[in-house]
Nucleic acid binder design. Structure first.
Length: 509
RNA sequence: GGCCGGUUCGUCUAUCGGCUAGGACAGCCCCCUUUCACGGGGCAAAGACGGGUUCGAUUCCCGUACCGGCUACCA
């Protein structure tokens, strides 16, 4: 009770981190920080066949981007390391041995082929009481046979000996009491033939050694919970066991089933937090970051997918999430991911973020497009003008590039139908006026003044301003979009505005 | 198949026995805007089904249906 809250996120480094993974991290983090506790990152790399180079760095980078920095991790160190299970290999064998001595585990010598054969022969084969005696293990074999097998270095695994007819139950922080009949659970492998532990053993041993107080993980782990409960009982005592919470799954938007990388590709939205390039295939999977999401928005949208604070509030800062988070307000049911709503969160965050901060993020995106930015102040001003029409960061490209360079594509087709000599005269005159301003030493003017002058000029020529606005807009930005025309003129200044008018006039001639 | 879990508008969700079932996204309409957005207003849209318990069930219990997860020397 009075011991410090310690939680862990324990991914296996097999590829990019998807939405569900990041949300698991987030809930862990929020819970820990809410209780002024510690958040640990532990890398579960016990399956050497699935290990993918770079995946661990990717995980660390993703956490950093999201602002969910671990207190202890392979990178940050800590008092309970090492934090990579592959580096803890010797530890697990000791506990497996202890279980054997206690009679809670046993050696099994069946080869993969033996098992495959057995599964073919018997429908719904389970390595458990029902078939244990038909297999090659230290329960079915005599002591002498086992000793010989061991002395000959016969490959073996260690399996948990699940008790006969017991009820295993535990209190899930989200689901309440969950119980299992042990006759339904099989003798899971604890230690593999290569000496590595399986998840089942490793998670229990490490959670104990790392003093984990609360263990949150995806719902897909619920069925193996009884194995872990049993292991806790045999090894460290149930009173030492962390509190469990099994998080609901994030489901695909259409149809059924949990969200996968393929769904994102199919439906055209990211599933990974950041870009991930598979080192083997060189195939890159797009991430939320690169798609133009702000980390604040990403964290926000994930947090409210399956959790809410009981009010109508939807926009939360990380700090607000920490303060308001509680595990018992997490949903039981899975949630379908809605990309449209996800974008809405980003739109909101773009509006919330101040222009200076936004400028830092937008600048590299524009520069990558070959847009030259000479002054920071100018960029900040432009961002203020266009931010409310941007949903994703790359939207700033189309929304603001005409502030930096004259439009290349000009939608003259939208001007032509109503174009006539009167308008031509007007714009020729307008350009001259701007030229005169420059001669007088004026670079620019306030938008409201520009508008007044524009309307006055229109009046003297007996033209309706309304008929002139669209052509003017297209001359300036190339199409029917963007902020108010006079804001644009004010921003790009007389010289540039004049050139764009003249250029367009020549196109229309 | 077995085990476990889940089930409120199309989607995310509020409701902890008393509701004309609220909000948000998406959709549609209107206003604002001489562009596109933003913003404001409005419309439409839900308690899987059947039994109980109760004065009263979306809320509690049971059953059914449907959906999902797991069922590896993967996590």
């Amino acid at each position: 009770m009075d011991s410090k809250v310690r939680v862990r996120f324990a991914p296996s480094p097999t590829g990019g981190l998807h939405l569900g993974g990041v949300r698991t991290v987030l809930f862990n983090y929020l819970f820990a920080k809410h209780h002024k506790g510690e958040f640990i990152l532990r890398i579960e790399d016990t399956d050497q066949t699935r290990f993918v180079a770079g995946a661990e760095d990717y995980i660390q980078n993703t956490l950093a981007w999201c602002g969910l920095v671990p207190d202890e991790s392979p990178l940050h160190g800590g008092a309970y390391g090492p934090y990579r299970q592959s580096e803890r290999k010797p530890i697990y064998a000791k506990y497996a041995q202890q279980l054997i001595e206690q009679g809670n585990a046993y050696y099994a010598f069946d080869t993969p082929a033996d098992l495959e054969q057995k599964r073919k022969e018997i429908l719904n084969f389970q390595y458990s009481k029902a078939h244990r005696m038909e297999m090659k293990n230290s329960i079915s074999l005599t002591e002498q046979e086992v000793t010989t097998l061991l002395e000959n270095n016969t490959p073996y695994v260690i399996r948990i000996k699940v008790p006969d007819a017991e009820e295993v139950k535990f209190e899930d922080l989200i689901r309440g009491e969950v119980s299992f009949e042990t006759s339904q659970v099989d003798d899971k492998v604890l230690l593999k033939a290569d000496g590595m532990p399986t998840y089942h053993l490793a998670v229990v041993v490490d959670d104990h050694l790392m003093r984990i107080t609360h263990a949150f993980r995806g719902e897909e782990w619920l069925p193996s919970a009884p194995v872990h409960i049993l292991l806790w009982k045999y090894l460290f005592g149930l009173d030492q066991m962390p509190k469990w919470a099994h998080l609901p799954l994030i489901l695909k938007p259409d149809g059924n089933g949990k969200l996968s990388k393929r769904d994102g590709e199919r439906l055209g939205f990211p599933v990974f937090a950041m870009d991930w390039t598979d080192p083997a295939t060189k195939e890159t999977t797009i991430g939320f970051k690169e798609r133009g999401f702000l980390p604040e928005a990403f964290v926000n949208l994930l947090a409210v997918l399956g959790w809410n604070d009981g009010t109508d509030k939807e926009i939360f800062t990380l700090q607000e999430l920490i303060e308001g988070f509680s595990i018992d307000r997490v949903h039981k049911g899975g949630a379908k991911f809605d990309y449209e709503k996800a974008k809405w969160f980003n739109t909101e965050w773009i509006k919330q973020l101040n222009n200076q901060e936004l400028a830092k993020l937008v600048r590299p995106i524009l520069e990558k497009e070959g847009i030259e930015i000479h002054e920071d102040d100018y960029l900040v001003k432009v961002i203020g003008l266009v931010k409310e029409r941007c949903h994703l960061l790359p939207d700033f490209i189309t929304q603001s590039n005409f502030f930096f360079t004259p439009p290349i594509q000009i939608d003259t087709a939208s001007i032509l139908p109503k174009w006539d000599d009167k308008k031509k005269v007007f714009f020729t005159e307008l350009a001259k006026n701007y030229a005169a301003k420059i001669t007088d030493g004026h670079l620019t003017a306030a938008a409201s003044d520009l508008e007044t002058e524009f309307k006055n000029l229109a009046a003297t020529q007996d033209l309706k301003p309304g008929d002139l606005m669209l052509p003017f807009r297209i001359m300036l930005v190339g199409g029917k979009f963007g902020p108010g025309v006079f804001d644009i003129v004010s921003c790009i200044e007389f010289k540039d505005a004049m050139q764009r008018i003249n250029h367009c006039l020549s196109l229309l001639a």
